[in-house]
Design a protein around this nucleic acid. Sequence first.
DNA 1: TTGTATGCGTTATCAT
DNA 2: ATGATAACGCATACAA
Lengths: 339, 339
Amino acid sequence: MKKESSTPTMKDVAREAGVALGTVSKVVNGLPVGDSYKTRVEDAIQKLNYQVNSYAQGLKANKTYTVAVLIPNIVDPFFSALAYHINTALLKQKYRMLLCCTGSDSTQEQEYITMAQQNKVDGIIGLTYNPKLVIEENTPFVTIDRSMGAGIPCVASDNFAGGQLAAEKLADFGCKNVAFLRIGSSLSNEPNKRKAGFENGCLSRGLHYEMKILDDSAPYEEFEKFLSEHIHNGKLSFDGIFCVTDRLAYSVIQTLQRLRQRVPEDVQVIGYDGIRLFGNMDYICSTIVQPLPEIAEMCVELLLRENMKTKPPLICLPVTYAYGGTTSENISNSDEIQQ
Amino acid sequence: MKKESSTPTMKDVAREAGVALGTVSKVVNGLPVGDSYKTRVEDAIQKLNYQVNSYAQGLKANKTYTVAVLIPNIVDPFFSALAYHINTALLKQKYRMLLCCTGSDSTQEQEYITMAQQNKVDGIIGLTYNPKLVIEENTPFVTIDRSMGAGIPCVASDNFAGGQLAAEKLADFGCKNVAFLRIGSSLSNEPNKRKAGFENGCLSRGLHYEMKILDDSAPYEEFEKFLSEHIHNGKLSFDGIFCVTDRLAYSVIQTLQRLRQRVPEDVQVIGYDGIRLFGNMDYICSTIVQPLPEIAEMCVELLLRENMKTKPPLICLPVTYAYGGTTSENISNSDEIQQ
DNA sequence: TTGTATGCGTTATCAT
DNA sequence: ATGATAACGCATACAA
């Protein structure tokens, strides 16, 4: 009574084929085996519909071909696109993705990491908000957009250059008086560079600029208040706005419409991230596009690289600008106006 | 030389605590153990930073607390929202999600299923396009939106009622002459019921209607052609359009704008799915909302239910209508006009 | 109550 | 080249 109707094992295949256990293992793993044996084993595998048990493999080899990916959520288009590209990059290397949505919650993040390590993942890629996560020494870890120091590599878009590019584009498109709007965790230092780059760009191009930085806990209405206060006689004093994310840009554009400001005629808006509707359709605004495929590839390569001696602390990948209907370019793109 | 600097095992904990292996196991699993032993073991666990190896657990128990989720992709807002809710439902039951993006490709789907079974997942939830997938008998399987017969449960929104509701809403909002637009795999029979329900609704409400059904391979331009052909003297002969998905509705709305038709003044549009921007913001159009949380919960419950004798073949969950700016309702929602 | 021994499915090291 | 056997980390039936 040793076997219930459970899934067949190598032992079953060996018995069926009339060979030894080790022989089956060799066939499965493509090691040299006598031809007659090989076919017999393959027939038995077919007949029993045998599949290797990767849990047993993992136990033996101490390697699971699984990588945990920690992101805040999966419904924000930026994060879902990120997850998509990471999955693609992992698949190329025959790795599986264990997706962990943390809700940006430090406790959840730690729980997921513990879980992932119990699950003996071969590595963790994380866009996290907890600067002091407890991670085992021997679990490779790569972060996205969050420098955690201590020999943990961070892959990010070139946030500084992106901010700068945004300022330059606004200047190119005729803006004189611009604003930078930001909301979000002040812990995450990488995106802060967008502000610095933007300032730098404004200075070098002689743009007058103002900043409005909100904490995570602040209500969005603060921005509406800020913008209203800069309207005099129905006219906004800014002719260009750079938002720290496309998501914020989307809300800001709605607010501007409520305030009877036309985009892009009265005020131009540039976001950051390069989000597209349905992942492959229109940009939701003119934006600084993050090179998601490259970021994903880089994370995976760094994570799986053997000689971890040479782990670079921070890798910045180049960004590009894309038109999304909320800027006034001289090129005739006006038939695709959004919102 | 048996131990490299690898992760500690129960044996290490036992040695450290000066107790037997089985005692450690009991402590870890919360089985009764003498108090002094218990604290000693717990201290050792702390000291060594021990974590159970779920691969070894899984091998032993033949249970992995992992469920594979097959969806076409993760960047379409509908699928990402679905994945999000399934993940949430699984987490409640202490299950992990192995996310598999199939690209709607039958071969990929089969590969993923093979992979998932090698990984000894406890079950599979799939929104698939291959009607004849090979799945082991003893791997629980639940489908979403695709009836596969043969005792495999299917969870879906009430597509028929949804189509009917769309027709009724259009009728309520004053439409007389409506159209149904559909593109997508003709293999997937569940969403086909949207058409049937819509027809039924039109008939019972005395709406004149027309249909335009496109195959997956057809170019989207066919719709543009179809709509242009129904414009006479600048006026579209339809005053209401029901699109099989929000995604299609989005494209159709753009097309209508190109054709100088105002939405919703000239023609009202209703989609299906209930997609929201960024997962929690505005609907992209007036729409029939799928009850995603309930669908996810139902899938998980069905999948993990022990007494699989009573597997219902098809479960339809109720849909609701939501305003998204593309219908003309008499209620004063007009300040939130989209597009 | 605590310790010991066996087996889960696989791989790898041995003899043969 | 092939077959027997030990070991991976854990859970558990059984013995103490």
